[in-house]
Amino acid sequence: MEPRSSTIFSVRAGGDPRRMAALAVHAEAMGFDQIWTGNDIFGEPGLIALTAMLSATDSIRVGSAVIDPVSIHPVQIAQFSSGLQTFSGNRFLLGLGAGSQVFFDWAGIAPAAPVTRTRTALRAVQALTRGESPVGLGKGFEEWTDQAVLRQPAEVPVYIGAMGPKMLTMTGRYADGALPLCLPPRQVLDARDQIMAGATAAGRNGEELDIAACLWCSIDDEADRARWILAEHIALYSGSLATEVLERHGFDPEEFVRTQKLMLDGNKSDAIKTVLTSSTMLELGIAGGVDDVIDQCGELMNAGVRHLSFGPPMGADIARAMTLLGEKAIPVLRREIS
């Protein structure tokens, strides 16, 4: 497999299967390379949506972002991944992640540590979809047997929803790609370095990995409306962002603390205004009109980013946002950024 030179553009969205099938058709028409949807337990039925999306499209690649190996056993993940890969003519991408401990607590589930369970599942799925048993892979596979093989295996690229250093390093050692949520967008450069270090330590060519910069993007015909929508999203999640990451990228954590307090006190409008008037908080994502988005994405591509993944909030209308990206922004970025 040769190192990739062209840039990949993808979109991330959620919803019921019918909505996701329609969005996948639209994303394909707009020239996106990939579309991803989630499958959180207690959330929307992502597995059904994946089937609907692949059935409705012809060329776009469709991915799960992400499936946890706790609520669904790795053998079953390998089984339906192989089926989706065969059914779609090799257009399925498997995204794996540790899953949310909050959701597991709701169900009374006590899983292994996040990196451990993700690594074990990743290696098991890779072996199973190759038509092999995971037996003999080392720690975590002592109870498997030679009979643990799929009847109809089909290899599938495996991406990891990675955020922390240990998960990113593990991704570089074993996975085919990564789906780090990049808040701010330039955080993808740190994630890339950690993934590359893991790949190098394992004797792999890190240039072959597909590292997606998973962005919060808001684009609209009216730039100010796009910025307001991103500001609302930042205000909503202002208390969930790691202080260490904020400080490393030049943000003031106290601004986020104040914004979170306003939200908790029911002062949503003031919280959004705080984000909009801050000199830095909007830099957590990409927002504005077409030219604004082109400029911000161009900076990332010039820094070596080769996969831009646009995700919520996306704007007032996700279909319109996809149209603006697909018809106006992406062609310019493909043409002008080498």
Rank of each mutant, 00 (worst) to 15 (best):
residue 133 S to T: 15
residue 80 F to C: 04
residue 321 A to Q: 01
residue 197 A to Y: 07
residue 191 A to P: 03
residue 49 A to T: 08
residue 165 P to E: 11
residue 76 Q to C: 09
residue 325 L to K: 00
residue 77 I to M: 01
residue 197 A to H: 10
residue 7 T to R: 11
residue 289 G to E: 07
residue 337 I to Q: 15
residue 139 K to C: 08
residue 114 P to F: 04
residue 271 A to R: 03
residue 337 I to N: 14
residue 80 F to L: 13
residue 15 G to H: 00
residue 177 G to K: 05
residue 5 S to Q: 13
residue 105 D to T: 03
residue 332 V to H: 11
residue 288 G to S: 05
residue 276 L to Q: 14
residue 58 D to M: 12
residue 305 V to D: 02
residue 191 A to K: 01
residue 88 S to F: 08
residue 334 R to Y: 09
residue 238 S to V: 04
residue 275 V to Y: 03
residue 300 L to T: 08
residue 334 R to I: 11
residue 231 A to I: 00
residue 265 D to F: 10
residue 130 R to I: 08
residue 175 A to S: 12
residue 52 A to D: 08
residue 44 E to N: 10
residue 121 A to D: 07
residue 121 A to V: 08
residue 169 T to I: 01
residue 203 G to H: 11
residue 99 G to C: 04
residue 55 S to D: 15
residue 7 T to Y: 06
residue 180 P to H: 04
residue 192 R to W: 10
residue 167 M to T: 09
residue 117 R to N: 03
residue 209 L to M: 13
residue 270 D to P: 08
residue 254 E to I: 12
residue 159 Y to H: 15
residue 156 V to C: 04
residue 175 A to N: 04
residue 313 P to W: 03
residue 235 A to Y: 05
residue 214 C to P: 03
residue 223 A to I: 06
residue 196 M to F: 14
residue 304 G to E: 07
residue 142 E to L: 09
residue 22 A to P: 05
residue 149 V to G: 02
residue 275 V to E: 02
residue 242 A to M: 12
residue 294 I to L: 07
residue 139 K to N: 12
residue 171 T to C: 10
residue 173 R to N: 02
residue 160 I to S: 08
residue 197 A to N: 11
residue 221 D to F: 00
residue 306 R to K: 14
residue 219 I to K: 01
residue 174 Y to E: 13
residue 291 D to S: 13
residue 324 L to K: 01
residue 282 L to W: 09
residue 133 S to V: 11
residue 173 R to S: 09
residue 116 T to C: 07
residue 206 G to D: 02
residue 38 G to I: 03
residue 3 P to Q: 08
residue 58 D to V: 13
